[in-house]
Amino acid sequence: MSEPHDSSAAIHGRPPARVDAPCELHLDWGGLGGFLLRSNCDLTASIGREAGGLLRPLPHAAPAMILTLACQPEVGVLPPDYCRFEHAIDPDRPEATFRLFGLHSEDELVLTAITAAALLIRCRLMNLRGEALHLHAAVVHKAGRTLLLAGESGAGKSTLTALLCNHGWRYLSDEDALLAGGIAHPLPRLLRMDAASADWLGLRSACTPFCGFFGERGWRWNGASAGYYADPAHVDAIVLLQRGDFPVVERSDPTPEEAAFRLLPLVQRERLGLAEEGEERARAAALRYNRQIPPALNRLLERVPVARLRYRLGGAPELLAQRFEELML
């Protein structure tokens, strides 16, 4: 195996370059129409590198959503790892503004852009369809079937997604599933995994390092981008990932009550109790989103079957990919 490009500078990232005139990018992002991304930093190179061709430029389209990223000048002395953002999403208009403080790297800026896009798409889905679910799940597609791979951090979503995409599956997301009416909207970001997973899959030499929020380090692989599935897709099944020291890969079918029990904590929610006093309409929209989660999840579970997959990461990757397909396709 060749050595990865593991320079300390690359791992720690570099700060984004400020620009005098706003940087504006018109993009097709999420299959819901054009996105206008504005920033006071130059996003062109970093978004292009991150998305690796996942984003389709829309130079003349009227934007369906407008996202503004504003890197704020630091006030006083900030701790070395300090980084936070505040956001304001207008619930009645498809617009959002994110203000970033203590930004250290382009990776943080791009991750913020993706987070902001996910929240804005979720808000737009709510306005278009009256319901939206933002689930902590990867999304993959093969042979006409789209699967959600749901699980807590460490369940192996990204690793399994990379494994499957290395075996002919198409990629929609490795982390966020934006759902409305049983349809998943893709979220264009590069697949990220830790060093151990990249090594196990033999993909580390094909990865580039990234430096995300709160010291998050890892490797991103643009191999999945080649099979990027850019359009919204009907979800055929939800796979609850349970990673452990299991001797065999095993599928079981949980009851709807068990499935809801496992999935509800994986739905991204608005933490209103922790929020500062915000604008009343935005708080009302957040509350509306929180309240429609249980019925929206119930409706999803009525139409989409759920399977539980117990597995162990290890051994030959191709055998796990083969067994996954036997059980899930």
Binding site: F261, L264, P265, R269, E270, R271, L272, G273, A286, L287, N290, R291, I293, P294
Partner: peptide, 9 residues
């Protein structure tokens, strides 16, 4: 599991 929709907790 108890879900409090008012706080998201």
């Amino acid at each position: 599991l108890l879900y409090d929709a008012d706080t998201g907790e």
